[in-house]
Amino acid sequence: MILYKNFISDTRVQREAISLAQNGYEIEVINCKDPKDNNRVINNDKRIKNSEIMEVQPKKRETVKSLLKFWFLAFHYLIKETPPPDVIHAHDLTGLPPAVLYKILFPKVKLIYDSHELFPEAAKDKLNKFYWLCFLFLEFICSKFITILIGASPLQLKILKRRIKKPQFCILNVPDLDFIKKDFDYENLKFHPLSPNKEKLFKIIYSGGVYTHRGYDEFILSAVRILERNHNFEFWIVGGGNYLNNIKEMVKKHKISNHFIFTGAVPYCELLKLTYNCDIAVGLYEDTANNNIMISNKIFEYMLVGIPFLFTNLKSSQRYIKMVKAIEIDFPLDPEKIGEKILYLANNEKTQYEISKRSKSIIMEKLNWKNESVKLIEAYLEALK
């Protein structure tokens, strides 16, 4: 596997590596080392080798220079591999070029492209059209050498099908219940609400990467509206990102710092515990192409712990919002309406309970990694036949 980020921080790649190892495959993950993760262990399975070929801080990883360096080091590492790999599993477009170069030299190797998002569209949303065209061209060149395509969303694969005419498998980024239960007793969680609303400090959580396309400005402004009516609210922002300092300044500007808690990024199971111990979760996303196509991990995390939630009515998320009858937030994002919907849910314990119960039931029965991992093994069998 080739991953241009830290293996320890990517739960999807960990799930896939563990599943493949459990099915008899020897896995090596070529990835980056985060200086902050020196003491964290991924898995005790000896069939999974974590090869950190380059140390880089998350912020510097976003530079072109860092990406080119990783491609060179990954290709050089692959060339020295003995015995040579049967399959190269490239995660995202940033992991694909060294795999393609290796396949050009050794055509018999099978190449699986695991696209976690529509990378060209994401570059267009976050950067500009020039980067979109560059990544689109790179994807076009690399697509000629792909054996199997894996996507994380049906809408994503529908678009990629026009660009990459290879066998496709859709593998949702859902929780691995067996892996989680070692550190998080999700099976014995109570349904929300956890305690009566009367005279209670209501905790609202928004977790994940803190970036401009995730509606944090509107979240802060909705908090201002809520606190004008009721001071008994506390807002948790759990995650890191390049927009975090802007959000902190915005909170200070509106003089509501004593109602906000910023934890930064936390390990996955700790994130689940924090989420469960809050009362309402929020998922806000801007109306961009990539957001509407890709399914946010947040929706599955919120469903797993059974927390009542509000979520932006993205095309990719509509199905899951309707499954549990969560509170929908329409475009354009309006802080006044978001605040009203948070207050509505906070004051309706019956709705909280129904969302909580439906969410946990669907995750336990259907939307879990045990079901999705079957498709991963099928993809490998297809590649190797």
Rank of each mutant, 00 (worst) to 15 (best):
S317F: 08
S317E: 09
S317Q: 13
S317A: 15
S317T: 14
S317Y: 06
Q318A: 10
Q318E: 15
Q318M: 11
Q318P: 04
Q318G: 05
Y320V: 08
Y320F: 15
Y320M: 11
Y320Q: 07
I321P: 04
I321A: 07
I321Q: 05
I321D: 07
I321T: 05
K322R: 15
K322I: 09
K322D: 11
K322P: 02
M323I: 13
M323V: 13
M323K: 14
M323R: 09
M323Q: 14
V324E: 11
V324W: 08
V324Q: 07
V324F: 07
K325C: 09
A326Y: 05
A326P: 04
A326E: 07
A326V: 08
I327G: 04
I327S: 12
E328M: 11
E328L: 10
E328C: 08
E328W: 03
I329G: 02
I329Y: 05
D330C: 08
D330E: 14
D330V: 09
D330P: 00
D330Q: 10
D330F: 10
F331V: 01
F331E: 00
F331H: 07
F331L: 04
F331R: 01
F331Q: 03
P332I: 00
P332S: 01
P332H: 02
L333C: 00
L333I: 04
L333F: 01
L333S: 00
L333K: 01
D334Y: 01
D334I: 10
D334R: 07
D334H: 04
D334C: 11
P335W: 08
P335V: 11
P335Q: 12
P335N: 11
E336G: 10
E336Q: 13
E336C: 09
E336A: 12
E336R: 13
K337N: 12
K337M: 12
I338Y: 01
G339E: 05
G339Q: 07
G339P: 05
G339M: 06
E340Q: 09
E340G: 04
E340A: 11
K341H: 06
K341A: 10
K341C: 02
I342P: 00
I342V: 12
I342Y: 06
I342K: 02
I342N: 03
I342D: 05
L343G: 05
L343S: 12
L343H: 09
L343V: 11
Y344W: 12
Y344H: 10
Y344P: 03
Y344N: 10
L345H: 04
L345R: 03
L345Q: 05
L345Y: 05
A346K: 15
A346N: 13
A346G: 14
A346E: 11
A346V: 15
A346W: 10
N347A: 12
N347K: 15
N348S: 02
N348E: 00
N348L: 02
E349R: 06
E349L: 06
E349P: 00
K350M: 10
K350F: 07
T351C: 10
T351E: 15
T351Y: 11
T351F: 09
T351V: 13
Q352H: 02
Q352T: 02
Q352Y: 05
Y353W: 14
Y353R: 15
Y353H: 15
Y353Q: 14
Y353C: 12
E354Y: 09
E354R: 14
E354T: 13
E354F: 10
E354D: 14
E354I: 14
I355K: 02
I355H: 02
I355S: 02
